[in-house]
Design a protein around this nucleic acid. Structure first.
Lengths: 125, 125
DNA sequence: AGAAGTACATACATTTTGGTAAGTATAATT
DNA sequence: AATTATACTTACCAAAATGTATGTACTTCT
């Protein structure tokens, strides 16, 4: 995940553009694992390895990286207990819960349209 | 953009997962240029080169590719007039308009939260 | 006559993303 | 004594995404 560049002067025109800050945050929310993490954490707290198992097959590298991106965006809250072996809890901030809801909404909409979409593909493809 | 794989038997668990069909459609909608195209075409028809100018700096390659992905998903309608020089109109299907609305909603939400997010970054970073 | 505009396709190069494997410190378990 | 579990990091490599350059076929503008 990248750092956010400063807002360009002509902000209005660049909304959603690849180099626009909002675009990068959106990318974090909808990234390969970002969306999954948001949905997995909705309403509950999970530890690193629990989350990993919940998502099925994320590499530790990507899970850590994606979580950090969401954390610096203020979507995820990380609480580390200083014990051995390590114990770290991840949960969503209020803003993160909102984001999760929106992403889930989009996902649900896509799922609802999937039969239609796949039928189109089958017909034309 | 990839072809959609068949739905795996344990569909419920894989929703949004990287290899799930719905995930790929979502990826098309939120891809670097996909989101921009949806918003740019909302409620209007544009030709290839108009769209290109509207988006600012897409390469022809990416514009064509992304449009094709959205077209096979049934989001974009392509109408080619058989004249020389070529003239091709792009617009959103009803489903595409819905998708555009949702994506725009997400984008707006992110923009609304941007000050908060950037303040967090500035404070912690 | 030469250049520009149109909507792409294709080959090639580069950038970005993601995975794999290994390392870290320490306690509990076998 | 070796293994397992935890939550990561780092180096390295393969794969995917994206950009660049070029070609096409024909017409209009200069």
């Amino acid at each position: 995940m990248k750092d956010l560049p400063a807002l360009p002067p002509d902000h209005e025109a660049n909304v959603l553009h690849p180099l626009c800050p909002s675009r990068l945050v959106l990318a974090h929310l909808t990234s390969r694992w970002g969306a999954l993490i948001l949905v997995a954490l909705e309403g509950r707290t999970l530890r690193f390895s629990q989350l990993r198992r919940a998502l099925g097959n994320v590499s530790e590298r990507m899970l850590a990286q994606t979580l950090q991106g969401l954390e610096t965006d203020g979507m995820v809250r990380r609480v580390a207990h200083d014990v051995v072996p390590p114990h770290v809890d991840y949960s969503l901030t209020p803003m993160g819960e909102e984001a999760a809801g929106l992403v889930k909404g989009l996902a649900r909409w896509v799922e609802g349209r999937l039969p239609e979409i796949m039928a189109l593909r089958a017909a034309r493809g």
